Amino acid sequence: MAESKQQQQIYKAVEANTVVISERKAYLITKRTIDIFLSLIGIILLLPVLLLIAIFIKLEDKKGSIIFKQERVGIHGKTFYMYKFRSMVSNAEELLKDLIEQNEASGPLFKMKEDPRVTKIGRFLRKTSLDELPQLINVIKGEMSLVGPRPALPKEVETYTSFERQRLEVTPGLTCFWQVEGRSNIGFEEQVQLDLKYIEKRSFKTDISLIIRTIKVLFGSNGAF
């Protein structure tokens, strides 16, 4: 039996070490609709929680802002500001240079389990991933999606190979495969592989499955720090 056009594309992609990206219009419209609807519902339902978090952040460190915004790289290399609840002391960026040698992550990432810059409320927020909730605003704005590769820092993208830059071919998201399969315990190379796996397999069914799995591991994940 003759190979289908899609099969031929997949074989060529594997040989060229590139991924085949689904650009089905119906899927993209459905994905965007779900992003907006669930993000708005989430913000409305979680409003009391958001207010409590804001109060606790200010009580522990009055100098810093409640929301931490950081430049990230989105689809096709376009940069945007990603929002998070601040989980570190107000001068965290200044202290980073003294901690670089203690980096526990592979590749261009910086991760440290016992990072002294993280506040008490910040540790709780990171453990439960509640620090990520402000990114629902990024989703509504269209800068992010609920599901997609996590957006990287510009300095991280500068070190990317052409293979790794394929992560930038789709809109970044709040969660993806590696967020529910190990999070910080997964090395950079495996993160890339899992992100590219999503890009090739993404569909309405895959997105809903990952959203449900993310909710299940939201509290008490051992892989978050």
Rank of each mutant, 00 (worst) to 15 (best):
L28Y: 02
E23K: 13
M88T: 08
T30G: 10
I29C: 08
K31H: 02
S90K: 03
K78T: 15
Y81L: 15
K5A: 15
I75G: 00
K97T: 13
R86H: 09
I44G: 06
Y11G: 01
L46P: 01
D98L: 04
G74K: 09
A16G: 02
S22G: 14
F80N: 03
H76G: 07
T33Y: 06
L47H: 06
K62S: 13
Y27F: 13
D35P: 00
S90T: 15
A16E: 15
K62P: 15
L47P: 00
E15C: 00
A16T: 13
S87D: 03
R32N: 05
G42E: 01
F56H: 05
K78Q: 15
L95N: 05
D98T: 09
L59C: 09
V19K: 00
E60S: 04
Q9K: 12
G64D: 06
L45A: 12
A13S: 12
E60H: 06
S87K: 03
N91K: 11
E71C: 02
L59V: 07
D35S: 07
L38V: 14
K12R: 11
L45M: 14
I29M: 13
Q9D: 08
G64Y: 05
G74W: 08
K25R: 11
K69Y: 04
D61H: 05
I41C: 13
S22C: 12
I67G: 08
G42R: 02
T33E: 01
S90Q: 08
K78C: 02
F56L: 12
A26E: 09
L38M: 11
R24A: 13
N91D: 13
K12L: 13
A16D: 10
F85T: 06
I43K: 08
Q9T: 14
L96A: 14
V49H: 00
T18V: 09
T18L: 01
T30C: 09
I43T: 10
Q70I: 14
L51P: 00
K63P: 00
I66S: 05
E3G: 00
K12H: 10
L38G: 04
Q70F: 07
G74A: 12
M88F: 07
I66L: 04
I43E: 12
E60Y: 06
A13E: 03
Q70P: 07
I43N: 06
Y27D: 07
E23F: 05
L47K: 08
G74R: 12
K31I: 04
V20L: 14
I21E: 09
N91Y: 14
G77I: 05
V89K: 11
D35R: 14
K25P: 09
S4W: 01
L46K: 05
E94D: 10
R24W: 08
K5V: 10
I36D: 01
L50M: 11
V49A: 11
L45I: 11
Y27V: 04
V89H: 12
L51D: 01
S87V: 03
Q9H: 10
K62Q: 14
K78N: 12
L59D: 01
I44H: 03
I21D: 01
G74M: 08
V20T: 12
Y81N: 15
R72F: 08
N17A: 07
R24Q: 11
L46D: 03
L96C: 03
K97C: 07
T79A: 01
A16Q: 14
Q7A: 12
S4Q: 03
L45R: 02
F68G: 00
D61K: 01
G77A: 07
E93S: 15
T33H: 01
Q6L: 09
I36C: 02
K12V: 05
E94Y: 10
I21K: 14
